[in-house]
């Protein structure tokens, strides 16, 4: 059901863990499936993401997208990180099954939440970043017949 890339990131997830005194921490839950993801960012004075860690309570796709998303933002600027969409994560994983698309949203939102936390802590405003919801839940598609 999952691609090889997904399975690789699931079996050997990159960047699992926590960062003490992180610059920003974001936790989001998915109202649709009840799963939860937390991202820790270590951002230096040049707004470059020096380190990133995650913890996930979720399905295989959630683990894999967390892992891939952290890889994609590592070493990037805050603005670049903000531009990493769930679509980009999915593409990097060679795709996800349709029922698992929402899992990749969790990763996108968790990064946004961590960036928001960073911005708040530092009293700055990041262009294009909105206050994250606690629970995300995508637009319910019509059941397809």
């Amino acid at each position: 059901m999952y691609t090889e890339k997904v399975m690789d990131h699931f079996k050997n997830p990159r960047n699992v863990g926590e960062i003490e005194n992180a610059s920003g921490v974001g936790t989001v839950g998915n109202a649709k499936c009840g799963d939860i993801m937390r991202i820790y960012l270590d951002i230096d004075e040049n707004e470059i993401i020096q380190d990133v860690k995650f913890k996930t309570f979720g399905c295989g796709a959630a683990v894999a997208t967390s892992s891939m998303a952290t890889e994609l933002v590592k070493g990037k600027t805050v603005q670049e990180a903000l531009a990493v969409t769930n679509k980009a994560v999915m593409e990097a994983l060679d795709g996800l099954p349709p029922v698992k698309v929402h899992c990749s949203l969790l990763a996108e939102e968790a990064i946004h939440a961590a960036l928001w936390d960073y911005a708040e802590k530092n009293g700055i405003k990041i262009d294009g970043l909105e206050k994250p919801k606690n629970d995300i839940s995508e637009h319910e598609e019509e059941e397809e017949y």
Binding site: F10, K11, F57, G58, C59, G60
Partner: peptide, 14 residues
């Protein structure tokens, strides 16, 4: 507690 079923199943499958 604290873990999710599908991940558990995939790891058992491995």
């Amino acid at each position: 507690q604290f873990i999710e079923g599908e991940s558990l199943l995939i790891m058992l499958d491995m």
